[in-house]
Every structure is written in C-alpha cells, then in structure tokens.
Design a protein around this nucleic acid. Structure first.
Lengths: 332, 332
DNA sequence: TTGTAAGCGTTATCAA
DNA sequence: TTGATAACGCTTACAA
C-alpha cells in the first residue's frame, strides 16, 4: 500500500508538502498542489488514518453505550447520534451492554486506551455502574434523570408522568393503575413521583394495589396487566411507563375480555413507531429522540475538545400525544 | 498520560520487556513479570491502543452498514454482530446509511484509510451501490439474495415466500393479494418469485391487480392495503413482504371494517418482536437473526485474516410461524 | 513556500 | 530471558 513518502517521490516534493497539501491546503503553492494531486491519483494513495490518529492522539470516534439496541426508542436516538457524529467527523462505536457491567467496562476501556474519545450513555444513572468509576473521561448521559451527575440530556419525567395522570383524571378516572419498570430504576422512580403528585393534587388516595411492576418489555406488560385484571376492582385506566409495556397490557386486557379504551384506558410513554399503529393507537409521551441525540454529540465533542461543562443540563420539551387508547371513565 | 517507557523505568526493565509482558507473557520471567505488573499499577498505565493499532496496521474494528438501525429486524442482527465482534476483540462501527450512497461511501473510506478492517452490509446486493466498487476490501453481505456476489449469509427468500403462499392455499385461499417492497429490491423479487411459483403449482392464475407496492414501512403497508380493499373483489388473504407492512395492512383492513383473519388473512415476514404482540399476532417467517450476525462476524474475520472465501454462501434455515392472523378462506 | 528531521508509543528483530 | 534499537506513516517545528 502506498504511503505519503511514495506520493512525495512521485510528485517530486517532500513528504511535508504532501502532508500540508492534505491538511492545510492554504499553505501550499498551486503548483505543488497540482503535482501532489496528480501523484495521489497515480499511486492511488489513501492516507493511513491509523497513523494520523496515533500522531494526533485522537481516535475521532465515540462510544455509544445502550442497554439494548433492539429497543425502538434507543435505536431512534442512536440513529440521530450516528448522523450528527458523522457530520462532525466522528465514528460511532456501538456498545450494546445488555445491562452487563463487564461489557460496559470493556467499552470504558476503549476510551482509557485512546481507541475512543468519549462516551454517550443512554440510560439513567446508576450509582454502582462501571461508568461512574470512569469519571474524568468525556461522558454524556442521555435519557437520565435529575439525579444524574455531570452533563445530561433528558426530559422532565416527573412532569410528563404527572401530565399523563392529570389527563386521565380529567377523563374522570379515579382508579388509575400503573405498570412500572423495575423499582430501582431512576425512570421508574421519577415517573412514579409524577403519578403520586397528580393523585395527591386531585385528592385521590394512593392505592398500593394498583401498582404492578414490570421491566419495560412487552412481556412484562402482559404479566403486570394480568395482575391488575385479577383485582376485585380493576382500575379503569392503566398508565404504563413505556409503550412496549402498554402494548403488552392492551393485549392482556383484550384477552381478559376488556375493551380498550371503552372498559379500560391505557397509556404509554416514548411514542415509538408502533404506538401509532397498534390497536388502539396509544396515547403517549413523545420524547424528542433526534434532538437528544444531536445535542448529546455536540456536547460530548465540546468535552472532548477540552471544554469544562461540569453540570450542564438540557431538559428538553416533550409532546403529549392523545390517540385512541384513552377515553372517559365508565363510572363516575 | 503514562507510556510504556515510564513503566519500564519504574519497573527497572527495558520497554521491550514491558511490551512482552503484556503481549507474550510466556516469554517473560516471573520476576520481571511481577516488577512490570507493579509498575503498571503504580503509574496507572493504560496501553495506547492507537499506537498498537498503528504499529500492527490493524484497526480491530469492523463497519456494519445498515439502511436503517430503527428497523427492528436489523437491530436484532446488529445486536448479535456486536456481541460476537466484542468476543473476538473487535469494535463495531455503526454505519446507518439511510440509503444514502454518500454516507455509504464515507464508511467505505473508513476501511480504505485503515480505520476499520472490513464491512458487513445488511441489505440485498444492489449493482450500483458504492460498496460494489470497493471490491477487494473484506466484505460480507448479510440478508442478501442469490444474486449477491461474494460471501453472503441469508435465508432462501424464494422458498420461504412459496411456503407462505402454499400455506394460504392450503387454507383454501385462492385470491391472495401481495404487498411487496419496492419493485427493484432483490428481496421483493425473490419473494415475488416464490409467490408466483406457489400459485402456478396450485393452478391459480396470477392476477396483476392483487399486487400492491409498498416500501417495507408500516405506513406503506397501510396504503397498499387501502388499495387492495378498494378492489371489486378484494383478496381473502394478503401476504406482506415484511411484518411492518403486515401491521400497517391489518390496521387498514380493520378501519375498512374487515376482521382479520375472519374476513381476510394477513401474513408477515421477519418475525420481529411486535409480530407476536400485535392484534392479531402475525403468521410470519422467522429469520435466524442471531446466527446470521454471528456467522457474518466469523466469516468477515476470516477474510480480514487473509483467507480467501471467494463465494462462500450460507443459506440458513428459517422458521414458519403460524399465529392468529391466518384462517380458512370464507368462500370456496 | 519548501524541505529536513524529530518524534508520537508500540512491536519486533537481533544480539547479548 | 533480556535490552538496544529500528521501524510503522504521519505531523510539525524549525531552518532555509
């Protein structure tokens, strides 16, 4: 494979001139430029970026850590990250952790060993995650919560959740079930907080029995809804902490003979593509996935370029989307 | 940041010994090993992989080109690719092309400039794609068709499609509509071929009017189904070339007052997660996404390591999955 | 504007 | 088993 020396030889100039022609064209005379270009053509030269990166001590790549790339909401965000990163000249290293601390660690090592310049992590902050010990590395948290230390980009989950319950209450619902994520998950805690706030404001007593724990998968939504169906007095509305669980819940309710929304209203969270096409289409919260991804990249690159952002927080607006999965409560 | 020289100095050995201690531990005496390990701890040394890669002229990373990461089937495959690549010591650079030739080119350049060692592309072969001109680079095609040149991993789309139509015919369907992808797409062509084969074998005449063109999105499935609904004699079954279009079709049929499957049967392709949870759950073809991803990585690494695989083809088995979206035809 | 040459951190060759 | 040293391809002072 041809290298810069070869080009210099063919062009009849020095390697420095070739290097300059490529990186700082303004510092090279038109005559040299032409010779260099011709030589590059002639020997079919492709700069060795491995050498350039090594020399400049930058990898021009960022790691994106995600618990599961198959989650449709995450893949939307990642698509935006990839796009913006490429525009800014960075490659995206995909780190699908599957919630494994070991995998997470390996990706952190990529940054420690200079193979990547920084990390964007999609998931709420967790105090015992390896990413916390790697502090000092350029790191941006995406989709986190208020408790996330360092720069983060998110929506206000408490508020969004409260909005949703407020809306259900405005439809005269009083027994509002909730299908949560795992108890310790910060999203779960935030969204639960909004749920409780809304109930409290409306003077509705909080009822422990109306809570069913899931873990953000469709299947867990089915199970949780089964549990709520089995109550003496099932809820007239169920708020789910994401769309997948809502889709599972709807399926479960139907199989138990309940019509959605006539008998029971169901709501989701995230507004993934399928929220719009399932039956009935889901009332849900839409997070600005594309903006989040783009902002995350821009912020991370500022960190990589040495800027200090100690606690920059971007709380983005969300959309409240009403579709057909919610209706007036049957009973007063 | 500390380097190998620093470690050598602290350990009181030469840089060569430190390097060997890390890469070829068996060539180092226990005594030196111990000193090196201590020194590494002491100065908190992390090898600079940028330098290692440069020196060894390998990036230890592969590019995965995908038309759209938000497609659930692709994300399943990518998850498997990431997992296997990490196990083999390679990083995955995500290239979401959005069907843009320009983006595709930039990722090919990553390989040409040594920043990546090879490419796995998820999508059928297309004669005018930039990836074809980049021949000579380690390249594996995934989810392609029979026409794909070079090593590829796929299922037999013609056969799978024929199986599906055979099944519908066995349920007494005779007017079987088909919602296709874009006409020129090799998957579309293969699956259409299977459709026609099955009809021909059953002695059912091919009817141009029963074809509706989509482009593999939910929305296009809605549109295509709208068209089929408008026929004088709508089909009694509709085979869709992927699950997304099937989900869209089901929604359209319902909104036109048709019950699925009582009035019209619908089938999908790919068996994405939602196929199982939509209403009704889809009869579909399941592709072995995980095996495909794993095999692709193993094959690509063989190419990267210099092996010749000129035309290795892996045609994997698929599963035929019967769920509730198909039923006996109403009329004889 | 151009060329010479040092140096980035590692690995590998060779000699001891 | 170890150490000295050249080399990988590029960028960039510095000198001309």
């Amino acid at each position: 494979m041809s290298n810069i020396r070869e080009v210099a030889r063919v062009a009849g100039v020095s390697v420095a001139t070739v290097s300059r022609a490529l990186s700082h064209p303004e510092k090279v005379s038109p005559a040299s430029m032409k010779k260099v270009k011709q030589a590059i053509e002639e020997v079919n030269y492709r700069p060795n970026m491995l050498a350039r990166n090594f020399r400049s001590a930058k990898a021009y790549s960022i790691v994106v850590l995600v618990p599961d790339i198959a989650n449709p909401f995450f893949s939307l965000v990642i698509r935006a990250i990839e796009d913006q990163a490429q525009k800014r000249g960075y490659a995206v290293l995909l780190g699908d952790t599957q919630d494994s601390g070991a995998k997470e660690k390996e990706y952190i090592r990529l940054v420690e060993t200079r193979l990547a310049d920084g990390i964007i992590q999609l998931r709420p902050h967790s105090p015992d995650a390896p990413t916390n010990k790697a502090l000092g590395l350029p790191y941006i948290n995406l989709c986190g919560t208020e408790d996330t230390p360092g720069p983060c980009i998110r929506i206000d989950n408490v508020l969004a959740s409260k909005n949703m319950v407020d809306y259900l209450i405005s439809l005269d619902h009083k027994r509002i079930g909730i299908i949560t994520g795992l108890r310790g998950n910060p999203h779960t805690m935030d969204r639960m907080k909004g749920y409780k706030q809304s109930l409290a404001e409306a003077g509705i007593e909080f009822d422990e029995r109306l809570i069913a724990e899931g873990e953000y998968s469709i299947w867990s939504g089915v199970n949780a809804a089964n549990k709520l169906c089995g109550l003496d007095k099932p809820p007239t509305a169920i708020m789910c902490m994401n769309d997948e669980m809502a889709i599972g819940a709807v399926q479960s309710l139907k199989s138990h003979g309940y019509a959605v929304p006539q008998d029971i209203s169901v709501t989701g969270f995230d507004d993934i593509d399928y929220a719009r096409y399932c039956d009935p289409p889901l009332t849900t919260i839409s997070q600005p996935a594309e903006d989040m991804g783009k902002i995350a990249v821009d912020l991370l690159l500022r960190l990589i370029e040495g800027e200090e952002l100690s606690k920059e927080e971007h709380v983005l607006p969300y959309d409240f989307i009403v579709r057909k999965s919610t209706d007036k409560a049957k009973e007063g």
